[in-house]
Amino acid sequence: MQIRVLQRSVLPGFGLTMGVTVFYLGLIVLLPLAALVLKSATVPWQQFWDTVCDPRVMASYRLSFGASLIAAAVNAVFGFIVAWVLVRYSFPGRKLVDAMVDLPFALPTAVSGIALTALYAPGGWLGRWLTPLGIPAAYCRLGVVIALTFIGMPFVVRTLQPALEDLDPELEEAAASLGASRLQTFRRVLLPGILPALLTGFALAFARGLGEYGSVVFIAGNMPMKTEIAPLLIITKLEQYDYAGATAIAVVMLSASFLLLLAINMLQWWSRRHSE
């Protein structure tokens, strides 16, 4: 930090913009989080521990983190394909498809939740075909993953698109002319170039999934121990005016997701350095 400040940049205005940055981040991010941690600090340690280690709370952590990871992974694969198609090929209606990618961003989450539930419920358009196959989609864990995949998709596509656009097609041609197979080209030429962006997209989708409440509560069924997500348990605590318990769960989620995001960032730095 000290070293950074001492290094003189040729760009003017560092002091002013840094001041705005500190204030802005402090107000928008740090202040609410500090309030959260302070509130949870009022809870006696034993009570804090009992709250966050309750089997039901543990089950909700597992579901929240598990479903978010699966959804982010699904999005990493299919989001990559969507981004690839949108960047590399031109076809009629491409602009339309491109615009559609943002829809999950724009839709109020409750609307997406209700729409998805109507679709996947046993009587719904998709649900009526899935249910006889023994795949209940709504009101079970799969439903949570579906909702989180839906809302996380734009993050992957939108972070991958610029990275793919930067990638020169000539590189692939060169690889092919030098005798690389398609798989080799993908693994050795394409992937290193887009991996940082892919990881960012994955991390964003994952983080978004962890915090998602509005759409999931409609499709999950909210059965204790089975399909209760952690944000729902926070709301449950608040309904009992148990502010301390709610913040306790929140602090654990926050710490865990911070660690995970940090790990993904590390991976990103590593992969960037590795590819250079």
Binding site: L16, T17, M18, G19, V20, V22, F23
Partner: peptide, 12 residues
């Protein structure tokens, strides 16, 4: 530099 940093904070 420290001064303009504080101006920035103030303005924001």
């Amino acid at each position: 530099l420290g001064c303009s940093l504080w101006i920035g904070i103030g303005l924001a």
